[in-house]
Simulated scan of single mutants.
Amino acid sequence: MKIFLPLLLSVFLCTCGSAPATSSTDDAATQQTRSVYEDLSPEEFAEKIGDPNTVLLDVRTPGETARGVIDGALELDYRSPEFATQLQELDPTKTYLVYCASGGRSGKACKMMDELGFNKSYNLVGGYSAWVK
């Protein structure tokens, strides 16, 4: 009996075969959990400005942007009640370079963009504060 049980168990495990191929629902779940945004240093961020199909996105408040912006940035206030709606109106096929004052709100904005199905976004680590140094 002591030999029979392990033998039976090994036969059962060997005959179960390999795991089934993933279904399209598994692929969708994987795609939802993958992150399409990356954190970039100011130097790496600067190298991407001007790339084709790329939009520079400033998510600071109007008071913050009054103290300076990166030239050419589209301004959408993360703290505005309309922010989520404005974000949904952007073209998700473009690449977005996103920044705020210190990198927190822009990171959250990038996560929102992931959830909305945007292809690619980059978060400026340290935000505008790091940019001006």
Rank of each mutant, 00 (worst) to 15 (best):
D26S: 06
E43S: 13
T33K: 11
D26C: 09
S121N: 03
Y78W: 15
C110T: 08
K120L: 14
K111F: 03
A130R: 06
S121F: 07
P52W: 02
P6T: 01
D91A: 12
Y78D: 11
L9S: 06
T61S: 15
L5I: 08
L5E: 12
N53D: 15
G103I: 01
L56D: 00
V98A: 04
W131L: 04
Q88A: 03
P92F: 08
T65W: 01
S129P: 01
V36G: 14
E89Q: 12
G63I: 10
R34A: 15
N53L: 12
G68Q: 12
A46M: 06
D91G: 08
S23E: 02
P81W: 10
Y128E: 09
I49P: 11
A29W: 07
K111I: 08
V98T: 14
V36C: 07
K111H: 08
D77Y: 03
C100W: 04
S80K: 08
F45E: 02
A109S: 14
S129Y: 00
D91Q: 07
V55T: 14
E44F: 11
T61F: 01
T65Q: 06
L90N: 01
G104N: 09
S121Y: 08
A109Y: 04
K108Q: 14
G104C: 07
E43D: 10
Y122A: 02
D51R: 11
M113G: 08
A109Q: 07
V59M: 02
V69D: 10
G104R: 06
I70V: 12
D39T: 04
E82A: 09
L56S: 13
G107N: 13
T15Y: 04
M1F: 09
L74C: 04
L57K: 09
S106I: 01
